[in-house]
Computed example of a mutant assay.
Amino acid sequence: MGGTTAVVAVRGGAPDSAGRDAVRRLGELGGVRVSDDWRGAAIVLDDVGSGELVVVAGPEVGARLQVPRDEERLLDLLLGAVPARATRVGVVGAHGGSGATMLAVALASVPVRAGIPVSLVDLDPAGGVVELLTGLERDPGTRWADLRRQEGTLLPERLATSLPAFEHVRLLGGDLRGGADVDEPVVARAVRAVAQAAEVVVLDLPRTVLFRAQDSRPSLIDDLDHLVLTASAGLRGGAAAAAAARALARSSGGPEISLVVRRRSGEDVLASDVAEACGLPLRGVVRHVRTLDAGVEHGVVPGARRGPLRAAAEEVADALGLLP
C-alpha cells in the first residue's frame, strides 16, 4: 500500500502554454502529479504549440490531443497512468450460503479500525444486499445506477467522498434500482477510481467470476492482489471449493488465492480437509453460531461485534498484509 508518484511529464512548449496549463490543471483536479522531468514518467507529452499535445510515451502513443476540445480524454489518460494506491482483495463464494458477503463486510471493517482508508465494492448484479446488511439503504450517496448515468471521468477522491459509509468504510454498491455486472465498462472504471482513493479495496464478487477466470479475455480478477474463496465444511462445500480452485488454476497469472471455511457444529469434514482437497492455504475458519444470524436480523453489521466472524476476518487481514 502506497501513494502515487510523479507519473506525467510535459516536454517542450512555453511555460505558460495552453497545453502545459491544461495538463497542470487537470493533473491537480485528478490528483495526478506532473513533472518537467520525463525520465521514469508513465506518460510523456510533447507540447507542440497551439494547444496541441502529442503522446510520446505511455498509453495511446502517437495520439494527438487538442485542448480544450480533448480535455476529457486527456483527463482519462492522466488518471489511467496513476498506479493503484490500494491493495485489492476479492471475496467470492465457492457456492451459495458460504458466507462470502458477510466475510467481505467484516474484512473491510478490520483495516479501518487501524486507521486505514477502505472501500467495499458490491458486485452482486441484483444489488442491495450489502447496503441492507450495513444499514445504508436509506442513506444518500452514489450507487451503481447513478454511475451509469454519469458522463465523463470518475475522479477518485470525488467518487470516494460521494459514497455512503458504515463504520468509516465507503460502500460502492447497488440498491433497489439494481447492481452491476462485472463486465460492464463502468465497473472497471469505478474500481480503478476507488483503488486510487483508498488503501484497501475489498470486492464482494459474484460466483460467475469463477467461470470467467478460464476465459482468455481480461478479467476483474486479473487486477486483484488477493482472492479469498469461501466454502462451507462438508461434502458439498469441499466439492465446490475444489471445482472453483481448479477453474482458477487454469487461468494464467492472477492474484494469490486462499480459503476461508464456514463450519457448523456437528459437521464431520474439517476445514483443513477442505483446504487439502482444493490445494489452497487455509486463512481462517468461521464457526457458525446462531447469534450471528440473529445479530444481522437486528441490524448489527457483520463483524462489528467480537465473535467467530470478526476473528476470522482479523486473521485474514493479518495474513494478507492489510494491517500496519
Rank of each mutant, 00 (worst) to 15 (best):
D293P: 15
P255A: 07
A275T: 13
G237A: 09
P302W: 11
R287G: 09
E297T: 10
R305S: 12
R310E: 04
G237S: 11
R264T: 14
V296D: 09
V316S: 01
T230G: 00
D268G: 13
V261M: 02
L227R: 13
E276C: 07
L292I: 13
R246A: 10
E276Y: 15
V274M: 05
V300L: 12
A241K: 08
A243P: 03
A241R: 09
S219R: 10
G266T: 03
V316N: 03
P308K: 09
V260R: 00
E314C: 06
P218M: 05
L259M: 07
R305P: 10
C278N: 10
I221H: 01
A244Y: 01
V228F: 11
G279A: 06
G303H: 04
S232N: 08
A231V: 13
L229T: 12
R262G: 14
E256L: 06
G307F: 02
A277Q: 06
V289K: 02
S219G: 09
P255I: 07
L235W: 04
D222E: 09
V296A: 11
E315Y: 00
E267R: 03
A304S: 14
A313N: 06
A213M: 00
C278T: 07
E297D: 11
D268L: 14
G234A: 11
G266D: 07
S232D: 07
S232H: 05
E315V: 04
A271D: 05
A249V: 01
D273M: 13
A312F: 10
T230V: 01
G237N: 11
G307H: 03
F211C: 03
G299E: 03
A233C: 02
A239W: 05
Q214I: 07
A313C: 12
G284K: 09
G234D: 11
V300D: 14
L270I: 08
V316K: 03
L282H: 07
A294Y: 15
V296Q: 08
L280C: 10
G237V: 13
L220A: 01
I257Q: 00
A247R: 11
C278P: 10
R236Q: 06
P308G: 13
R305A: 15
L282M: 00
R264D: 15
S272V: 15
S232A: 12
R287S: 06
A243T: 05
A231I: 12
V289M: 02
S219W: 04
V274K: 08
R246G: 00
A244M: 13
A244T: 10
I221G: 00
G307W: 00
D293L: 15
L227P: 04
L270C: 07
A241L: 14
E276V: 12
C278E: 08
S252V: 11
R264E: 15
L270P: 08
P255K: 07
S252C: 12
P308Y: 06
G307T: 02
L292Y: 04
R212C: 06
R217T: 15
A233G: 03
A317F: 03
R262I: 10
R236E: 00
L282C: 03
R305H: 12
G284S: 05
